[in-house]
């Protein structure tokens, strides 16, 4: 295998000319970034935009006061037939409705996860322009399988977590990746396919139902 490594590196250097010398980090080009890297709009405008864009993906989305969240979570779960929901270890107590049977993720097998109706998670950052929530396997989000295997995903987004653009979100996520190497999952609406005659079908393998609550205050 190291033969292949050396051969490929040699081929690259030969293709690039310069007497087959290795390229140096100093040879790299500064990239002109004339595109928007921030969004100047007011936070409330961004929250509205986020809700509109999440709705465009046919996800359920609702702005809600923290005080009303518990009832709303219960209602949303029951509406989708969800009684037994898995919760990540760090999910705040305010986001754990008493009326539902909540199963803490104590190393559940995937088969056990598959038996559950849904999951409640928070998120790390959300993008208004694209209607995207980003999970980073933090304590209030849980490992990746949690938001993947059960058929219903309820996600709570705090209004202050919403940024305007993709670059703003990635700026927040960079340290999560470089320092902690945590995996990221960008979610924009429920699982979907358009493979048959381009007709969109929601729900193939990921959760078929995505419910997003936007709360004003952190718990």
């Amino acid at each position: 295998m190291s033969d292949a490594r050396e051969a490929i590196l040699r081929r690259i250097r030969s293709a690039l000319g310069d007497g087959n010398a290795p390229t140096q980090t100093g040879d790299r080009q500064e990239i002109g970034r004339e595109y928007r890297r921030t969004d100047g709009r007011a936070q409330d405008t961004l929250v509205e935009l986020f809700c509109e864009r999440v709705g465009d993906y046919r996800a359920e989305v609702q702005r809600i006061a923290s005080a009303a969240l518990e009832d709303a979570l219960t209602a949303a779960a029951l509406r989708s037939g969800g009684r037994r929901l898995v919760v990540p270890p760090g999910l705040p107590a305010e986001w754990r409705p008493a009326q539902l049977e909540l199963v803490p993720d104590a190393e559940l097998t995937t088969a056990e996860l598959d038996e559950l109706d849904g999951v409640i998670t928070g998120c790390t950052v959300a993008i208004a322009e694209t209607g995207t929530i980003v999970l980073t396997s933090d304590a209030h989000e849980g490992r990746r399988a949690l938001s993947l295997v059960p058929d219903l995903h309820i996600c709570i987004v705090q209004a202050s977590q919403i940024v305007g653009t993709v670059p703003e979100a990635l700026a927040q996520l960079a340290p999560v990746v470089s320092a902690e190497r945590r995996p990221l999952t960008f979610i924009s609406g429920p699982s979907a396919t358009s493979d048959i005659e381009l007709k969109r079908v929601e729900g193939v393998h990921g959760p078929r139902k995505l419910v997003v609550f936007v709360t004003e205050e952190p718990p």
């Binding site: 190393e107 190497r181 999952t185 609406g189």
Partner: peptide, 15 residues
């Protein structure tokens, strides 16, 4: 505007 799922992983994550 964005595809439903984008996964990014950096090596192996414990658990």
């Amino acid at each position: 505007r964005m595809n439903p799922y984008t996964s990014l992983w950096t090596g192996v994550s414990d658990g």
